[in-house]
Amino acid sequence: MERNVGGLDRIARGVLGIWLVAVAAAAYRNGKRSRAAITGIAGLGLLQNATTCFCGGNYLLGIDTTTDSGGDE
């Protein structure tokens, strides 16, 4: 998989992912299991995108938010 998530996009996905996981935990504690499952899956998906620097949606749409720094990584 080639990287297609970087910079500010990666930070935003990480922050939003953490927030959604926290919302999922709160919903689970309040007995709203379906809401907890949906927000938990969304949050974990965003955290996976931020960690691996790859997003399948970006790939399908041809979006690349990485910047070429000139070095091979």
Rank of each mutant, 00 (worst) to 15 (best):
R3W: 03
A27Y: 04
G56I: 07
W19N: 10
G43D: 15
A42F: 12
G6D: 04
V15D: 09
Q48I: 09
R10L: 10
D68P: 00
N4Q: 05
V23W: 09
T66D: 08
T51K: 11
G45F: 07
I63F: 03
D9A: 06
N58I: 02
G17S: 03
A50E: 05
K32L: 15
W19A: 13
N49V: 11
L61G: 03
G70D: 06
W19V: 10
L20E: 11
I18A: 12
V21K: 13
A27C: 09
T52F: 07
A27M: 10
G40K: 12
I63H: 05
R35C: 07
A50S: 13
G45W: 11
A22T: 12
R13E: 07
G62P: 01
C55I: 09
R35K: 14
M1A: 05
A42K: 10
S69W: 03
T65V: 01
I41H: 09
E73G: 00
K32Q: 15
A50Y: 04
N30E: 13
D72W: 05
A24G: 08
E2I: 02
D9N: 04
N49Q: 13
T67F: 06
C55V: 09
A24Y: 01
T65E: 09
A25R: 07
T66R: 06
G56S: 08
G17L: 05
G7M: 02
K32G: 08
T51P: 03
N4W: 04
A26T: 07
F54N: 14
V23T: 11
G57Q: 08
D72M: 02
E73I: 00
D9M: 02
W19H: 10
L47M: 15
L8T: 01
N58P: 01
N30M: 12
G57Y: 06
T39H: 12
K32E: 15
V23R: 08
G7I: 02
G17R: 06
F54Y: 15
Q48H: 10
L16S: 14
N58C: 02
E2L: 03
G71A: 01
V15I: 14
N4F: 03
G45V: 10
I18R: 06
V15L: 14
A36G: 14
L46W: 08
R33V: 09
A36R: 09
L20P: 07
V5M: 07
I63G: 02
D68A: 01
D64T: 00
I38K: 15
G6M: 06
K32Y: 14
F54V: 15
A12V: 05
G7F: 01
M1N: 01
T52E: 05
L20A: 12
A37F: 12
C55R: 09
T65L: 01
S69C: 00
G70T: 03
G71V: 00
R13I: 05
N58S: 01
R33T: 08
N49G: 06
C53S: 13
Q48D: 08
R3I: 00
S34E: 15
R29I: 09
G31S: 13
L60T: 00
D68I: 00
N4L: 04
G45P: 06
G71F: 02
S69T: 00
G56C: 02
T39S: 15
A12Q: 05
Y59W: 11
A12N: 05
G31F: 12
